[in-house]
């Protein structure tokens, strides 16, 4: 399979503080990978770098053979890269429908439309005129996912979609994932909840203090390896 996205020795800084140290990573077209790691490991920082919110050297991030590390976030979005941000981050002054419409702003052709998002999450259709802030956490997460899909991306990054949600809600969202990635979309699923992430992915990377501490096929990695890579201590 051809590579869709490659990270070459990706670094990231917040002022003097270095959050990522030489991350190398590859994603094949159509692949679903899991990124796990403790709080503060640098997962969100990596996604912010890929999506262009943190700028890097151009060749540190290569997408479909094109160096995109130095591109602005809106340019990256137009290339078909979407992010479901940590903590949902809906636009509070926009209604549910408007949040989705804004997601479709890049105007890429593809299977996703408002109707299709409503088909995936029927509750949103009932609530389409409501302010996004009036929704429950799970419903807001559905809007955030729908908003990313509206762009018809080729590659979606999910940043801790289960954060702060009840188990039954998490289950319903993860149940919808096969429908989403079934469209041939490539996905990166970031979670602290390891089992959920592993259940839907074929490969896994573990981050620890800004470095890749483990990488492998989901079915090959052992529980002990993960514990070691996750916490940095032997089990």
């Amino acid at each position: 399979m051809p590579d869709l996205l490659t990270l070459h020795a990706l670094d990231a800084h917040y002022g003097d503080f270095q959050a990522l140290f030489g991350i190398d990573m590859t994603l094949a077209d159509g692949e679903v990978i899991a990124i796990i790691g403790a709080n503060g490991a640098g997962k969100t920082t990596m996604l912010r770098s890929i999506s262009g919110l943190l700028r890097n050297r151009a060749d540190q991030i290569v997408y479909r053979g094109q160096p995109i590390g130095a591109l602005r976030a809106d340019r990256v979005a137009h290339l078909g890269i979407a992010l479901v941000p940590e903590g949902r981050q809906l636009f509070p002054s926009l209604s549910v429908e408007e949040n989705l419409l804004l997601g479709g702003k890049v105007g890429r052709p593809g299977p996703w439309s408002m109707e299709k998002v409503f088909g995936l999450f029927p509750i949103l259709e009932e609530r389409r005129r409501q302010a996004s802030t009036s929704l429950s956490g799970g419903q807001q997460q559905m809007v955030a996912i729908g908003r990313a899909l509206m762009a018809n991306p080729d590659f979606v990054m999910f940043d801790e979609v289960s954060l702060g949600l009840a188990p039954v809600v998490i289950k319903s969202i993860y149940d919808a994932l096969p429908d989403i990635v079934g469209e041939g979309m490539t996905a990166m699923i970031v979670e602290q909840d390891i089992s959920k992430a592993l259940s839907v992915s074929s490969r896994v990377y573990c981050l620890q203090e800004g470095r890749v501490s483990l990488e492998g096929r989901t079915k090959d990695v052992t529980h002990d390896q993960i514990t070691q890579a996750y916490f940095g201590v032997a089990a």
Binding site: R72, D74, A82, F91, L101, L102, V106
Partner: peptide, 23 residues
């Protein structure tokens, strides 16, 4: 759609950028 963009950028510049709006 223009006004939607105004409100989105006003709410959250980063996320608006990710949605393809050049702030």
């Amino acid at each position: 759609s223009l006004g939607r963009g105004f409100r989105a950028v006003s709410d959250n510049q980063d996320i608006a950028q990710i949605m393809g709006l050049n702030k």
